[in-house]
Computed example of a mutant assay.
Amino acid sequence: MFDAEAIVDQATRKALFARVRRHTGIDMADRKWTLLHGRLRRRLQALSLSSYGDYLAVLDSSTVEVGHFIDMVTTNETSFFRTPRIWDYLWNDFLPAWYAGNAGSTLQMWSAAASTGEEAYSAAMLFEEFRQKHTDFNYRILGTDIAQRVLDVGGVGTYLGRNVEGLQKARPAMLEKYFQPDGVTHAVAPSLRAHVTFRTHNLYQRLKDPTRFDLVMLRNVLIYFDEAGQETVLENVRQSMASKAVLLVGESESLNRIRTGFTYQQPLIYRNADASA
C-alpha cells in the first residue's frame, strides 16, 4: 500500500513534473511538489500502488490513466461573472461595436479554459440580454478544457453551492431568469444551453475547428505556463481568431513581456493584430 509520508527522490519528482508538462503543458517546479503530491496520493491509494515509480509505469501504459492524471493536476477554479470589469466591457463596448459592424451575423466566442462552464454561461446570459434589444443578434459559444471531468459539469449545466450563491448576490435577476431551481440545485435554462457546446482541447495544440472566433476568453490559465509555453498557447489561440478579434486574459496576467501577435487595448484586453488571420 502507498505510504503517503514516504520520501520521494528527486528523480521521481522530476519524472512526475515531466509528465505534467508532457500531458498538459503546465510548468511545475519543486515548489509545487506538495501540491502535486497532495493530488496524486489518493489516486495511488485507489489503485493499490505502493510507489510513484509504480504509478509512472501505469501512467505511461494507459491512456485512461492519462485522463485521470490530467483531471488531478489541473486547477479549475471559476465562478459566474468573475472579474466584473470584463463583463462591463463586453456589455458597454464590445457588443455594441461588434453588432454595429456585423448585424445579422453570428458572434463566435471561445471560452478557452472553460472549466465547469460558469464563464461560458455568464457570456450566454449577457448575450441573451443583448439579443432582447437586438432581435437579429445571434451567438455561438464553444467551451474547451483539457480536463473532461469539469467539462462534464458544464455539459450537464447544473450548479449548486457558492457559485450559485455568488450569482444570487451579484445578479439575482439573471439567476431567476436563466436557471431552473430543483431542490438545492439550479439548472441552466435550455435557451442558454442551445448556444453553448463543450469539448476537450489541449491549448498546446491548434484547435480543430474551422470557426474564426470574434471573442476569446483565455483567463487565469497563462500563469501556469512558462514564457515559451505562453507564446505557444497564445499563437495557437490566435490562429483560431478572426482579424481584429478580441482576447480577454485574467486579472493577474499580461502579454507585455512576451512575443505575441496581439496589440494591447486596455488592462486584460488585447486585439488580434494580424489582418490575415
Rank of each mutant, 00 (worst) to 15 (best):
I223N: 12
L167W: 05
D3I: 01
L142P: 15
T63Y: 02
V237T: 12
D209M: 07
Y224G: 14
L40H: 03
R13M: 06
H186L: 09
F262P: 09
A187H: 14
K169I: 08
T83P: 02
A170N: 14
R140G: 15
I141F: 12
N92F: 12
Y55T: 11
P267T: 04
A97G: 05
S254W: 13
D182P: 12
S61I: 00
I86H: 14
V8Q: 00
V249A: 01
H68E: 15
L47P: 01
M217S: 07
I223W: 05
Q168L: 13
A15H: 01
F94S: 10
L47A: 06
L247K: 07
G104V: 06
D71F: 01
R13T: 04
E165G: 00
E251H: 13
A187Y: 04
I269N: 08
A120G: 14
D274Q: 12
K208G: 13
Y178S: 14
A189Q: 09
S62K: 02
M1W: 11
D9K: 01
A97C: 11
S79K: 08
R257K: 13
W98L: 12
V237G: 10
I7Q: 07
V246P: 15
N163S: 13
I223G: 13
H37E: 00
R199P: 07
V64Y: 08
L59F: 00
E119T: 05
E165W: 08
D274P: 02
R42A: 06
I141W: 10
R13I: 03
F69C: 01
R162V: 06
F225R: 04
L59Q: 01
A194F: 00
E251A: 14
L151C: 09
L95H: 11
K244G: 15
Q132K: 04
F80P: 04
P210Y: 09
V184N: 09
T83A: 03
L207Q: 09
S62Q: 08
V249K: 02
D54A: 07
V233M: 05
L268R: 07
A124E: 11
Y52A: 00
Q148T: 13
N256Q: 13
V246H: 14
H134Q: 15
D226C: 02
S105V: 08
R149Y: 09
